[in-house]
Write a protein that binds this DNA or RNA. Sequence first.
DNA 1: ATTTTACTTCAAGTATACTTGAAGTGTTAC
DNA 2: GTAACACTTCAAGTATACTTGAAGTAAAAT
Lengths: 142, 142
Amino acid sequence: MKTTTVKTYSITEVSKMYHLPTTTLRYYEDLGLLYDIPRLKGRRAYTQQHLNRLGAICCFKDTGMTLKELQELFEAQDDDANLDKTCEILDNHYQRVLEQLALLEKNERHIKRKVRFYHDIKTAKENHSKMPNWEDYRDREF
Amino acid sequence: MKTTTVKTYSITEVSKMYHLPTTTLRYYEDLGLLYDIPRLKGRRAYTQQHLNRLGAICCFKDTGMTLKELQELFEAQDDDANLDKTCEILDNHYQRVLEQLALLEKNERHIKRKVRFYHDIKTAKENHSKMPNWEDYRDREF
DNA sequence: ATTTTACTTCAAGTATACTTGAAGTGTTAC
DNA sequence: GTAACACTTCAAGTATACTTGAAGTAAAAT
């Protein structure tokens, strides 16, 4: 007979690993995003499967998916019959991520210009030199 | 005597230009993020200054700044004495944006792999060929 | 002239994602 | 033994960012 002990993690360990409060981990479980978490002496014992899923939750949540959409995705993913729906959700979400990326890159450039502009104002004020003009910072690469 | 007519925009025009409901534009005004909007016959008439500020609101909000933080930023920005605070807020926010960008890029790669994985499962099922293994999709560039 | 349209103000309501509080249990520290 | 600690469940509360509803106004359309 073969006995294998599976490495598990307490809720506090998982909380630290994923930078999520323990309350949030319980909340995700309430929503069904995480399930079948075994209990050792009444305490949650997360396995590698749960960590993998939690990684997916963070990835999708951080890219703007709502918890409700995540429920739908996992529902489709955990049901082999719903491959089409899984692909559809993933494809749609990937498109949204590409849009977010383009927008974030645009906004990053804008904020970079603004940072530089205000630092130059500060320098100009300190040196009593000519004040910069925002127009000179628009659409210009530094 | 010189008379100049300044081009203004109605709330519906602004709503369409910035893809924000009119109610949200009024809400931002209530919060003081937009102010001194002139009224023509009781209706809001946004000037270019207001559009510029609204552009900034969208940029900062889309990069995760809360409306409260935006209030602080504008408060510091509109007060010449607070150049240091303006720079501090902008610097801190820019750091957060760079972190977001790195995270979003990482998440984009992960989701791209997942999209490809599920499409390959679908193809394999249709062709009755060998099922792909997620391990082959981890940390691999396509 | 009166109805429709497009606003206006102000207060109250809602959605999402947690977060907190109360009461209880089982191992560990003194 | 008993107190402290680290959890447990379940219900209720909170923060942020809107969103909706009610009542009113002013100009345009019929």
